[in-house]
Design a protein around this nucleic acid. Structure first.
Lengths: 256, 256
DNA sequence: CGCGATTTGGGAAAACGTTCACAAGCAGCG
DNA sequence: CGCTGCTTGTGAACGTTTTCCCAAATCGCG
């Protein structure tokens, strides 16, 4: 299979297929309890998680001037099954062209819109210790649409210092700064012992999405979205599989 | 639910939580695994991911000298449904006592064994840039059973320098050092552009589990387990939910 | 010892997610 | 214009995970 039809890939332009634009149904009043996404109907959690990957892959294709890509090609590069990819994309609407594939630019636009990346989002980073400093300097955030707008810490020794052009603020000023920048997302890179306390303050300041790096289970009100990155847990999961592999090898040896 | 019990049993007052969890999926390979040899039956992927959390929570309970915990209590603290927790634990065997609950110490032991944490596991960290240095210094690894045994980089400026008591080795020496320390797990914190190349070298050196921090889709042989941590993707997922919330608020406003 | 209160373990159903498989749509060509 | 080749979009099958629910096990007490 030809993975990616490079340069000068077939058609240069999308005809008028993208005519039926699934824009937000402004006129059509809306039902009720429907918690709908920004673009279309409901998008499954598992799909949302993959959209980020598709978006990244599509960006690299765009950089290589690839204009069109089939689900089979895109799926291979993204490391998923092509049927799954098509189903995922179908939640955003019908933006493919049968017999041809998907227009890279169009797809990037629609995924970006679905993920809410078309509006500017500022992120607050709480805790500039070991991990926090690395996050503050992580280039991947900026290149994928996020700007760390403020750094906070509770340690007087760190407050006032400058990291990558940003001054570390006293967490006491959280409320004011969050309001000022219209921050709705915060990343928590604080010690486990104080994570819940800091989390509560962050929630109180008006933040509604939290990415937690501390190895504790945080509890937040229902209207706040919480995700976690547990580094040690990731290694433990790998460890589990290592054990399993070792056991399988043993079994095989015994059988032979 | 009566959470308080006399003696050294857990007491807590947990507010209602809305903890959410995203699931990941990778190539769910693996086939039959023998139940012999003190091992356990098949444990679902989703369960394995949660075991790490249970273990962490149980450790804090043990620190507080709690000796017994019911599924209801443990589930509340871990942020999951109690039926799910019981089912998860049942995959390890029957270690609970009806009418009483689970013995904290016993449970810690069994989960640790299932996750393969009873054998020493050394981890290689490839790439000591921004993020890599933070990982090298992350205390959470050591406290949860992992030791970073070697640091590698390709940059001559970094090779030879010392980070947290470990000297950065030239990645050219990967094979020898991996073999010497019996390393089977590696964490990749290298630039996206070289991630696949480095990954291939790591695999060739004999590593069979990889934790990838680079924002690229890596491909590895079937016998190697791969997990990824995509920081920007986490924010994008939160962004999606922010958008969704904004849309819901709008809908509400229109209705009112 | 029997009883009531409690809690596990697991069968069964429901919910969710993935994969299959194919009709429908589109482009290109003769 | 019809035919061929290719690819999307999606209903249905399948597999996995979660949840429901209750019999069985255990404890404490009278």
């Amino acid at each position: 299979m030809e993975l990616v039809r490079d340069r000068a890939t077939l058609r240069l332009e999308v005809p008028m297929t993208a005519s039926r634009d699934a824009r937000r149904n402004g006129p059509a009043a809306v039902r009720r309890v429907d918690t709908r996404g920004g673009a279309d109907g409901r998008v499954p959690d598992a799909t949302v998680a993959r959209l980020a990957t598709y978006l990244r892959v599509l960006s690299t294709l765009a950089d290589r001037s690839v204009t069109t890509v089939s689900s089979e090609e895109l799926a291979t590069v993204a490391g998923v099954n092509s049927a799954k990819l098509r189903k995922d994309l179908s939640f955003l609407g019908s933006y493919g062209i049968r017999g041809v594939g998907y227009d890279v630019t169009t797809l990037i636009e629609h995924i970006s819109r679905t993920l809410g990346l078309t509006v500017h989002r500022s992120v607050a980073l709480i805790g500039v210790g070991n991990l926090g400093q690395a996050l503050a300097g992580y280039a991947g955030f900026a290149t994928r649409g996020f700007r760390i707008a403020a750094l906070f810490d509770a340690d007087p020794a760190r407050i006032g210092s400058e990291i990558r052009g940003l001054v570390v603020s006293d967490i006491a000023h959280l409320d004011a700064i969050v309001a000022e920048h219209g921050i709705t997302i915060a990343a928590l890179a604080v010690p486990a012992a104080v994570a819940q306390e800091v989390c509560d303050r962050v929630v109180a300041s008006g933040v509604t999405s939290i990415l937690n790096f501390a190895p504790v289970v945080l509890s937040v009100p229902a209207h706040v979205h919480l995700r976690k990155v547990d580094l040690a847990a990731e290694l433990q999961i790998l460890s589990f599989h290592e054990t399993r592999k070792a056991a399988a090898a043993l079994t095989e040896a015994v059988e032979a």
